[in-house]
Simulated scan of single mutants.
Amino acid sequence: MSTYATRALVSVLCELAADADPDSVSVRLAATPAGELEPTDGPLSGIDAATPVLSDFYFPDAGASLSGVFGMDLAAPAGQTAGRFVSHPDCDPSVSVTDDLHATVLVAVPPWTPADVRAYDRNGTRLDLVLVDAEAEQPDTPV
């Protein structure tokens, strides 16, 4: 079984992990259907248009003050996080019991490159991670 993520997203997540090292980081991920992505290097082939592709993330510190007051995470819209990215500075690439589990969990280890990222399902079963050269459409902003 495979999970899909944009190459740009995984690269940015690796940078976040490197910046946080020696501390770990945990980031919520959002998915976009493959048919709604803009290819960055040729057409997307072999991916069904309805296939969810991890494409965006919510900053780890967003909503921290709300969480402190209300005791729950209010920074991400309910039901809109398709996965979780976690970094393991201890170099253990497996999912641990202390990780926040989602349907899909991406785990990164040093030296923090996309090749050092592994994908798992919520049960800790390893998935193939397929990097997609595409990005989510950006909303038009007034000039």
Rank of each mutant, 00 (worst) to 15 (best):
F59M: 13
L66N: 01
T81Q: 09
M72L: 11
A75K: 00
T81E: 10
G79V: 01
I47N: 03
L44N: 10
F59A: 15
E36H: 10
P52Q: 09
A49Y: 07
T40K: 01
A76N: 06
A64Y: 04
Q80R: 12
A30K: 07
P22Q: 10
P33N: 05
V69R: 00
D48T: 13
F57E: 01
G68W: 02
A50T: 10
S26P: 00
A49D: 12
A31I: 00
R28A: 15
D41H: 14
S55V: 02
T40C: 06
A78W: 09
L29R: 02
G68C: 00
L37V: 06
F57D: 00
G42N: 07
L74Y: 01
L44G: 11
L74Q: 05
G63Y: 02
D61L: 14
T81C: 09
D23H: 08
D56K: 10
A62Q: 11
V69N: 03
Y58L: 12
D73L: 04
F70N: 14
D48M: 10
P22M: 04
T32K: 08
G71D: 09
D48K: 14
A75W: 01
R28H: 01
A76C: 12
A31P: 07
S55F: 10
V69Y: 11
T40V: 13
D48P: 03
G71A: 08
F57K: 10
A62S: 13
T51A: 03
D41P: 03
V53K: 07
A75R: 03
L54M: 14
G79A: 05
V27D: 01
V27Q: 05
M72F: 11
S67L: 11
P52H: 03
G35S: 02
G63K: 03
A34P: 04
V69E: 13
F85T: 01
L74D: 08
A78G: 12
P22F: 00
P39R: 12
E36T: 08
E38M: 15
R28T: 11
P77N: 07
S67D: 08
S24W: 09
P33Q: 06
S87P: 03
A50V: 07
L54C: 06
